[in-house]
């Protein structure tokens, strides 16, 4: 598709880019959740584990 105006071209590329950004966030969370799904529970404050 021919773009005569740089602004129009940018509108097109940036719209795709924002959608990609949304996918990045979801994707990272997904891969992280998957990777840590079998980790031992994290005990950040062991002194509280006494309960």
């Amino acid at each position: 598709m021919e773009y005569y105006v740089y602004h129009d071209f940018m509108m097109h590329t940036k719209s795709i880019t924002y959608i990609l950004m949304g996918l990045f966030v979801v994707g990272f969370w997904g891969i992280w959740a998957f990777m840590t799904s079998r980790d031992e529970e994290i005990h950040k404050f062991p002194e509280h584990d006494k309960e």
Binding site: H7, M10, M11, K14, S15, T17, Y18
Partner: peptide
């Protein structure tokens, strides 16, 4: 955000 994003 919801209608017509000016992404530039």
């Amino acid at each position: 955000v919801f209608l017509q994003p000016g992404t530039t």
